[in-house]
Computed example of a mutant assay.
Amino acid sequence: MSMTISSPAGLSDEAITQTLIAGADAARTSTLGRFRTQLAVDNKFSSGFDPVTEADREAETRIREAIAARFPDHGIIGEEWDTKDTTTRFNWIIDPIDGTRAFISGVPVWGTLIGLTYQGKAIAGLMEQPFTGERWLAVGGRLEHTHNGARVPAAVSAVTRLSQARTSTTNPDMFTGPHLSAWTELNARALQVRYGLDCYAYCLLASGHIDLVVEAGLKDVDIAPLIPIIEAAGGIVTTWDGGRAEMGGTCIAAATEQLHEEAMRVLRDAMLE
């Protein structure tokens, strides 16, 4: 079941689309130009590893400039720089390189994420993987997937059972405590599990190649831009308790309502044991 949200009155789909594309265009030189080069990598955490590079910071700056040039009064929430507050109901959500670990390893499953929320709900989103030339763009409940500028059909699969589901999570280490027990049970029941795909997994779901993505510990910038893409493709994405996923946390995206319900049941029952 799709839960698409149309763009609010007073802000046209065309204006949103142009801004998303302008942001992606602005980021591309910073990201693609540095991909598979010997970059300096900083660690944002004193314990653990959360990498950031000059490409992340510069790309977000350029995306922010592209947004501010068109909507100077809108809020901006980004991965690398401080939040720009707004008195409007609009916030743009930016992760300039979702999957920096993949980026610094030369693996092309990272992507630039840009989304727009209205009153806290995601209404538009873009994911671009410039190395492969792919873009998923969802505005006004409609999804456009392109490869090197040519349109490619995109819709979720018809898989309804966990035993048939091609499943993904970025890293099993994100699950701890009851969430680890829940993931272990779901992993055992799924057809297969692929790791390390970051935002690319959600877009593969929107294109019918992956059926289920289950994650924990997400930030708003990790998931909000992807929600309109999944929903416009006919999929469903929520938190593990069935709520809206814009703020991140534990998130589950599924191709069909039946698959979503079964996965939710498995997760819930495992956490209660």
Rank of each mutant, 00 (worst) to 15 (best):
E134I: 09
E134N: 12
R135F: 07
W136L: 05
W136D: 10
L137N: 07
A138Y: 09
A138M: 10
A138C: 12
G140D: 11
G140L: 04
L143G: 04
L143E: 05
E144F: 07
E144R: 14
H145L: 08
H147A: 13
N148R: 13
G149M: 07
G149L: 07
R151L: 13
P153A: 15
P153G: 08
P153N: 08
P153E: 10
A154I: 14
A155T: 13
V156F: 00
V156A: 04
A158C: 08
V159K: 03
R161I: 02
R161F: 07
S163Y: 13
S163W: 10
Q164G: 09
A165R: 14
R166S: 10
T167F: 07
T167I: 08
S168K: 05
T169M: 05
T169Q: 06
T170K: 06
D173S: 11
D173G: 14
D173P: 06
M174S: 11
M174I: 13
F175Q: 02
T176Q: 13
T176I: 13
P178C: 01
P178L: 02
P178N: 06
L180N: 09
L180W: 09
L180G: 02
L180D: 09
S181C: 07
A182Y: 01
T184M: 09
E185C: 07
N187C: 14
A188Q: 12
R189V: 07
A190K: 09
A190Q: 12
Q192L: 15
R194A: 08
R194H: 10
G196F: 15
G196N: 15
L197P: 10
L197S: 05
C199D: 10
A201N: 03
A201W: 02
Y202C: 02
L205A: 06
L205C: 08
L205I: 00
L205D: 04
A206F: 00
S207F: 06
G208F: 09
H209M: 12
H209V: 14
D211L: 07
L212E: 03
V213R: 04
V214N: 00
E215C: 02
A216I: 04
G217P: 13
K219Q: 13
K219W: 09
D220F: 04
D220C: 12
V221M: 06
D222V: 00
I223S: 03
I223H: 05
L226T: 02
L226S: 01
P228W: 00
P228N: 05
I229W: 03
I230P: 04
E231N: 09
A233Y: 05
G234D: 06
G235N: 05
I236W: 04
V237H: 04
V237M: 05
T238P: 01
T238L: 03
T239M: 01
T239A: 01
D241N: 00
G242W: 00
G242A: 01
G243E: 03
R244M: 06
R244P: 11
A245E: 02
G248N: 13
T250E: 15
T250N: 14
C251Y: 11
C251E: 10
I252Q: 00
